[in-house]
Amino acid sequence: MRVALFATCVNDALMPSTAIATVRLLERLGVEVDFPAAQSCCGQPQFNSGYRRACEPLVRRTVRAFAGYRHVVAPSGSCVATVRTAHPRIAARAGGGLAAAVGELTPRVYELSEFLVDVLGVEDVGAWFPHPVTYHPSCHGLRLLGLGDRPLRLLRAVRGLELLELPGAEECCGFGGTFALKNAAVSAAMAADKTAAALATGAEVLCGGDTSCLLHLGGTLRRQGAPLRPLHLAEILASTEAEPWRAP
């Protein structure tokens, strides 16, 4: 099977380790991975800030970049949710046949845990990660994609991993894109509550499926000097006994 990796711009520029881990994980599972270099940002920051028209070229680019792939996989619930829910809205207003092209792409785009569980049909990906971990389900994956317990099922199958339940897991971490800047005080208060809940679990690792939320929570934890490090689900699933995960 051959898939296109939709790395997402945040991972490309700021957290390449997530995209690299996704590549290694998929290849280990026998999937051939392509990285269509024409890809860029899904336009989420612009769209959610009210700049819908500025997104149109990015929607067109996304459609072009992933044309011809049966499966497009992204290690981000939030970006996949943008493709599924925002791109049709942008395209509907843009005209020029974009809506049809978007409608054709949308069902082929998968969030990583969706792809693993629903398409590949695996929960045990052969990972090894001997650490206590707690998992924060980011909002867009949880509510817009309905990922449910897929990420947890994947984590439970990881050898050596002790999964600790995060109280109030379904509550937003306070990132919210420009919300983190425009309403910094509330955003910081939400992050403080989320990191406190995560620290109280006694976990060493705070796992998530969205890099932006992890940057926000990780930045908060580092400022606090807290002994808890954020890791993307892909990084944990990429880790094996033979090749323990180490960010390149």
Binding site: A7, N11, D12, A13, L14, M15, P16, S17, A19, I20, F35, A37, A180, L181, K182, A184, A188, A191, A192, L215, H216, G218, G219, T220, R222, R223, P248
Partner: peptide, 19 residues
């Protein structure tokens, strides 16, 4: 508004594209 309560993400040595 970001750095009052959060560290900035460390910029990686190379973007994923280059890797």
């Amino acid at each position: 508004a970001w750095t009052d309560t959060r560290e900035l993400p460390a910029v990686p040595p190379e973007p994923f594209r280059d890797w």
